[in-house]
Simulated scan of single mutants.
Amino acid sequence: MDLTASPLTINEYIETGCNVLEITPRDIIFHRLTGTAPVHLLLAPNWCSGKWNGLIERTS
């Protein structure tokens, strides 16, 4: 059994997030869709270190 995993790409993350939001009941409130960590503590994914730039590019 292969137990290796790889982090989501930013596109996979956005797609998954959108799918979750679409099926979530309207009375549920999300307080956070993403988080941040200092670069020296971040293990993966690498796009998290500059994620706001990537998310802004994809919504423009």
Rank of each mutant, 00 (worst) to 15 (best):
M1T: 05
M1S: 04
M1E: 13
M1F: 04
M1H: 03
D2A: 09
D2Y: 00
L3K: 07
A5M: 07
A5E: 13
P7Q: 13
P7G: 07
L8N: 02
L8I: 01
L8P: 02
L8C: 04
T9C: 09
T9V: 14
I10R: 00
N11W: 01
E12K: 02
Y13S: 00
Y13G: 01
Y13H: 07
I14R: 03
E15I: 05
E15L: 13
E15C: 03
E15D: 15
E15R: 14
E15A: 15
T16D: 11
T16A: 13
T16Y: 04
T16E: 15
C18I: 10
C18Q: 14
C18K: 12
N19W: 03
V20H: 05
V20D: 12
V20I: 15
V20A: 10
V20F: 02
L21E: 14
L21V: 10
E22L: 11
I23C: 06
I23Q: 10
T24H: 09
P25L: 14
P25E: 15
P25Q: 13
P25D: 15
R26C: 05
D27T: 10
I28C: 15
I29S: 11
F30A: 12
H31C: 09
R32W: 04
R32T: 07
R32L: 11
L33A: 10
L33R: 08
L33I: 09
T34N: 10
T34W: 11
G35Q: 13
G35L: 07
G35M: 05
G35T: 10
G35K: 04
T36S: 15
A37F: 01
A37G: 02
A37S: 14
P38D: 11
V39T: 13
V39I: 09
V39K: 15
H40N: 05
L41Q: 09
L42D: 00
L42K: 00
L43N: 11
A44T: 08
P45I: 02
P45G: 08
W47F: 01
W47S: 02
C48I: 06
C48R: 11
C48H: 04
S49N: 10
S49Q: 15
S49E: 14
G50P: 00
K51Y: 02
W52N: 10
W52G: 08
W52L: 12
N53C: 07
N53E: 15
G54T: 00
G54C: 04
L55Y: 01
I56V: 12
I56G: 03
R58W: 03
R58C: 08
R58F: 03
T59Q: 09
T59G: 08
T59A: 10
